[in-house]
Design a binder for these strands. Structure first.
Lengths: 338, 338
DNA sequence: GGCGGCTAATGAAACCTTTCAATTTCTGCG
DNA sequence: CGCAGAAATTGAAAGGTTTCATTAGCCGCC
């Protein structure tokens, strides 16, 4: 293990000053080609690697953006992360992916780490609707963009209209003639979930059906395991009162429900139609391909990153914007009997 | 946007020296309780946030470990990342997740960023078997642990025995009476893929079958799309020469193949049995629940992180170790006709 | 030959924290 | 009351880069 070389060593070897070395690294056009080559050679010979900590200390701000999501296990978020990372890369920024796991404490922990790192900016799908820590961070001058979460005009956000998504899903089920429908999702404190539910209720009213036609089953989490559990609860109901369709707040839940139905030989969609949400890759590969509400996840990530960059670069003239995408219903076998 | 406060401001406000402030932050036991409280109050009042860059500059090394994986879209890797992150968190380290996407160039890019950040250590599933950059990094004193990749004694690694996994899968198919089997996976340059193939061939020999019984279909990638494509190619073959079983190098491929078969009404496992690899959550939720080779992904991550910490803390007395886990075959409907 | 105007290169200061040897303050005891 | 020893606090140095006001070097033109 050799002592790592610094700019000073490079400068010495190349016979120039440290300032010149720095210029070769950051403003190559300012230094004469001959000198530049000499410096570059010295860098290669010494195996010099720039110390990002020192650069950052001087710059006062890092080149890293934090992306805090609710669940890395959910392909929706990894797709979104893909969009973020691509756009970030195009602007010379790197991304650190943080998983809050829908836990406010972990979210807070990640946020403080990001602040200590003087993150360039933060993209976050917050656990709670009201997160004072976020305002504090923005108050300190770090741009923050809310992702998959609509918001007031006081901050930038990127989202998909969850009410419309809920309406699309519900209207589709009503259209197929279902009279007893269950909404499966939770915790309801998650905004996306409650909005989708609101949309579903709206569709119910629009169709002139009584509110009792929709039963809400609140789950503890939005993953496959919770779906399986809920599936069992539903399958246990007597066929007469059992819902004939479920609208799940995301695809993981839907896949869990579907899995239980398959195991317990409840025909889908014959006895139970299922609609999911997100249209992840696995939705179409499921036991019965899932009808699902598609969200433009990668575009969402891209738009969020672009907003963040705008807020960072034009900090004074920046106008907060709320970008809202439209979801799209993808109909598959889980709601359409052959 | 207020000027952010530094240790100096805090010291001034609390009426102590900067050294004491630093001690409150890093060695609270060294400072008298009364003083400590005064400093903590000043910190709260000023909204002081430690500057990680400066701390790092002084320390010479960061508290971040890099985890470079082949595909964040693959749940196997996100599960693995979960294990890594948990273990890292327990030791006060944070993790940055980097996606190489099986592209050597992106891998290299991530590695240089990690070096510039003076990463505490690096966990990597390398794209190529031979990656000189890794040796250079280790030579500079940064611990590196290979993940899901066995290796020579000259470095730490954590892996699951892929040959045995291949053998298990293949032996199972042979046991079910299949005589024409396809191996689907690629690029074969990925070690995990070629090892699984080697294991499959071994099982073939052990069963006394001719090598021609196994056809190798090399894919461009290990994702659902590649699986769908291969599925079409297989389904296009005349029933007489078509394999009666496929062993896919991972579950994403298997799900893709399965999806095509379902769409094209080729009965699974009736006309085509399918075995996957990794046993991701979605494998059991598939159209036909997938038989798959389970890997202890989270444990893998945990073990890798522990090895890394050992290498970092006991750098001189450290003995490189190769931890190898055993995979396990999970049999489901995709290979067992009712 | 001298001088203006230009490009290229210089080097010290600043960024903020941690460390550690040195100093001050406290405690208990003779 | 003084002193030894322990405990608490101090303050300057170090860590590696970037910035920017200066200085040096060069060219062409009067």
């Amino acid at each position: 293990m050799i002592e790592p070389a610094g700019v000073i060593d490079v400068a010495e070897r190349a016979g120039v000053s440290v300032g010149t070395v720095s210029n070769v690294l950051n403003h190559p056009e300012r230094v004469a080609p001959a000198t530049r080559d000499r410096v570059l050679r010295a860098i290669a010979e010494l195996g010099f690697v720039r110390n990002e900590a020192a650069r950052q200390l001087r710059a006062g701000r890092s080149r890293t953006v934090g992306l805090v999501v609710l669940d890395v296990g959910n392909p929706f978020f990894t797709d979104l992360a893909g969009g973020v990372e691509k756009t970030a890369g195009d602007h010379g920024l790197s991304v650190v992916l943080c998983n809050s796991g829908d836990d406010a404490e972990r979210e807070e922990h990640h946020l403080s780490l990001l602040q200590e790192q003087r993150a360039f900016g933060i993209l976050i799908t917050p656990v709670a609707t009201k997160t004072p820590a976020i305002d504090v961070i923005r108050g300190r001058g770090t741009p923050v963009v809310l992702v998959d979460h609509s918001s007031s005009a006081r901050q930038c956000s990127v989202s998909v209209n969850d009410q419309i998504g809920g309406e699309l899903a519900m209207a589709h089920l009503i259209d197929k003639g279902h009279q007893r429908i269950a909404f499966v999702g939770g915790p309801l404190s998650i905004k996306q979930v409650s909005e989708r539910l609101t949309g579903a209720r709206k569709a119910l009213r629009a169709a002139g059906m009584r509110p009792g036609a929709l039963t809400v089953v609140e789950t503890r989490a939005l993953n496959v395991a919770a779906g399986r559990q809920t599936g069992d609860a539903i399958a246990d109901l007597p066929a007469k009162t059992r819902p004939t369709a479920v609208f799940c707040a995301n695809d993981l839940l839907a896949l869990g429900v579907l899995q239980t139905m398959t195991r317990r030989r409840v025909p889908v969609p014959g006895e139970l139609a299922i609609v999911g949400y997100d249209d992840i890759d696995f939705a179409s590969a499921a036991a019965v391909p899932l009808t699902s509400v598609r969200q433009p996840s990668a575009q969402l990530g891209q738009a969020a990153m672009e907003l963040l960059i705008d807020e960072a670069r034009a900090s004074h003239s920046h106008q907060h914007r709320q970008v809202v995408f439209e979801p799209e219903l993808i109909v598959r076998e889980s709601t359409t009997p052959d």
